[in-house]
């Protein structure tokens, strides 16, 4: 029954730590002395201005802060135009797991670098669109392990919570001797659900 505090910035949140570990591309605006070892492709002692490196989010946040930002950030490709178009087309068909394990968490950090707010919009859009799918998956308890492999971390957690609740509820419904159940005729009559939905929608 313990509450688990899971959201950023939480010192103890493993997910937050892992999400901020993701790397994003950024460009150095000025020379940085003695940091040449960050760039494996050169042997120079100093890091030259204009170098493009992939740095973890936690570092970038500090570097790009304040008046004298040292780096200029770019969006990781999964948040760029072409990928956003894919998500807009049909977010449900996308394997978010392959995009990034921490698509939403990372997005929340990334969008501070995105002035136009596109990232913000696509995060919301994706989540809302895919929510129905998660709910459906959880309710029609398919014991198919591949289902979860297509979900992002946050979605996977939602899914398993919903799935647990669903299983418990189903167990409760059938546990007593007398099961409340629809008549056989009704169960076999496949159109029934669709008809009800029409009324509701």
């Amino acid at each position: 029954m313990a509450l688990h505090p899971s959201y950023a910035p939480n010192f103890y949140s493993i997910e937050d730590i892992l999400a901020t570990q993701e790397r994003i591309p950024c460009k150095f605006l000025g020379n940085v002395p003695d940091m040449g070892h960050l760039n494996p492709s050169t042997l120079e002692k100093d890091l030259a201005a204009g170098t493009v490196l992939e740095l973890p989010v936690w570092l970038v946040q500090e570097l790009s802060l304040g008046r004298h930002s040292i780096v200029a950030t770019e969006l990781p490709k999964i948040y760029k135009e072409s990928y956003r178009e894919i998500l807009k087309a049909d977010a449900c068909a996308v394997d978010l797991h392959k995009f990034n394990l921490y698509f939403y968490e990372l997005g929340k950090h990334i969008k501070h670098f995105d002035r136009k707010g596109d990232v913000h919009d696509i995060l919301l859009h994706t989540f809302k669109t895919r929510f129905r799918q998660i709910m459906d998956l959880a309710d029609h308890s398919v014991s198919d392990p591949t289902v979860q492999e297509r979900l992002e971390t946050l979605e996977a957690r939602l899914f398993s919570d919903a799935y647990d609740a669903r299983t418990k509820l189903n167990a409760w419904l059938v546990e007593s001797g007398a099961i409340l159940e629809a008549a056989n005729m009704v169960v076999n009559h496949k159109k029934r659900k669709r008809m009800n939905l029409d009324i509701i929608m």
Binding site: L3, P5, S6, Q61, L65, K111, H112, G117, H120, L158
Partner: peptide
């Protein structure tokens, strides 16, 4: 959470925004 960050992001460059400390209901 996704919504609230937008305003904070748009306002300034600061990243050390005071997020609402929130707890999950899941458990």
């Amino acid at each position: 959470r996704m919504k609230i960050n937008k305003h904070q992001g748009a306002q300034s460059t600061t990243l050390s925004t005071p997020f609402r400390t929130s707890t999950s209901f899941s458990n």
